[in-house]
Nucleic acid binder design. Structure first.
Lengths: 98, 98
DNA sequence: TGCATATATGAAAAACTATTCATATAATAA
DNA sequence: TTATTATATGAATAGTTTTTCATATATGCA
């Protein structure tokens, strides 16, 4: 049973949750959860417009949830660390296990 | 490394994350994380208006994240299950551990 | 250089949500 | 009944965010 975190921590928690709580971004995170993918691959897998995916990748980048690597004209995105997967898993379990 | 969930599951995940991703609701969830509390207790601990707390409790209720018990004029709220705490913990760790 | 492809971005539109204010309901006590 | 306390709620406001559209930038190739 956790204690009430400080306002600063709560703020950061709110921010992380906000970023995770979007349909398109959830799809993007799952799309790159096994291995890095290029933007066009992500666009295809997620089924959203190129512009939207690019905008949402920017949001994920700004929050340091993804890392990028440029190769020619392609940009490859990957999840920044395993915390993200842990979060996705907890949420997935809550939704499916009941 | 998880697979892409179905649209329905993603939708439910988005919904749960949306509900968790609010400063006031986070505070409320922490306030009742150790034991049930009455609305007025929550109002005091969270430091928000009675109206706002009541509105947000309704959101949490609708999502089945809290349970309620009425006793006289008081209504006591508690977390519905431990999944919620697991979620809070994962987010807390992500925010503090780096 | 000019052309094609990949990605990013600014601005506007559309949709949504938190918060406040005023008020309603419910229970209890005098 | 009237008054008081606890909680809930409808409506409006204020602020934010997602999505689209048009366009810009960057890279590679002919």
């Amino acid at each position: 049973m956790p204690n009430m975190p400080s306002e600063v921590i709560l703020d950061e928690m709110e921010n992380l949750l906000n970023i995770a709580s979007d349909f398109t971004r959830l799809k993007i995170m799952y799309a790159i959860s096994e291995r890095e993918k290029s933007v066009s691959d992500i666009v295809e897998e997620v089924g959203a417009s190129q512009s939207l995916v690019s905008h949402q990748l920017k949001v994920l980048r700004k929050a340091n949830l993804v890392s990028t690597r440029k190769e020619g004209t392609r940009v490859y995105y990957a999840l920044a660390d395993d915390h993200v997967i842990a979060l996705l898993n907890v949420v997935y379990e809550h939704v499916t296990e009941e």
